[in-house]
Amino acid sequence: MNEVQGPTPTGTSRPYRSLAEALRAHRIDPVNHEFIGAIVDAVGVTSFIDRGRYIEALRRGDHASLHIGRTYTNGFAEDETIVVGSTPLRLQPSEGRAPYFYVTHPSEYAPSVPARAAKRSSTPRTPSVPREKAPKPVTERDYGVCDVCFMVKTPSGGCGCD
């Protein structure tokens, strides 16, 4: 879990008025919005700041701030128990932000469905017409080799030395 630290690439940061505004601005998958909202409510976040690659969520008390990325939320202590719904989250050790832990967002576990398979038409399908068989490839013919220049002869019997 590598995470780039610090301000945005331009050196600036700006606060967001709400979590919804921050999630939209960072184009985080809408599937994760409810999950992230539950985490934010559970840990007591006071404000959100744009940090370029992630949203920094400042917490009440002396807890570390959370970093909310597209696929993860990072910044939990080892002894924290975060419950979303009725399930405690499985925290994993952070590689880029030790000694903190992170949780992966639900969209990372969703099965990937091709866009073509997801669309369904309300019109009935017509029976498919059998396809014509592709023509067989033409077999190469051997026109012989010239005795003088050893090049392959053309269909007319000529070669490079004629």
Rank of each mutant, 00 (worst) to 15 (best):
N2A: 15
Q5I: 14
T10Y: 03
G11C: 10
P15G: 12
Y16I: 04
L19H: 09
A20F: 04
A20G: 11
A22P: 03
R24W: 01
A25H: 11
R27E: 15
D29W: 06
D29F: 07
P30N: 06
H33P: 01
E34Q: 13
E34R: 11
F35D: 01
I36A: 04
G37K: 09
A38H: 12
I39F: 04
G44D: 09
S47I: 01
F48W: 04
G52F: 07
G52N: 06
I55Q: 07
I55R: 05
L58F: 06
L58W: 02
G61D: 12
D62N: 15
A64S: 14
A64N: 05
R70C: 11
T71D: 15
T73P: 04
T73M: 00
G75T: 06
G75W: 02
F76S: 03
F76N: 03
A77E: 13
A77I: 00
E80P: 05
T81Y: 00
V83M: 08
V84F: 08
G85H: 08
G85I: 07
S86Q: 14
S86Y: 10
P88Y: 08
L89P: 09
R90S: 14
R90V: 14
L91C: 02
Q92A: 14
Q92M: 14
S94I: 01
G96W: 10
G96T: 06
V103I: 02
H105Q: 12
S107I: 08
Y109C: 02
V113K: 06
A115P: 06
A118S: 09
K119L: 14
R120N: 00
T123G: 07
R125I: 00
T126M: 14
T126A: 07
S128A: 14
P130V: 03
P130T: 05
R131D: 06
R131P: 00
P135K: 11
K136P: 00
K136C: 13
T139Y: 08
R141K: 14
G144H: 07
G144T: 04
C146A: 05
C146I: 05
F150A: 11
V152T: 14
T154C: 04
G158L: 10
G158Y: 13
C159K: 04
G160M: 05
C161I: 09
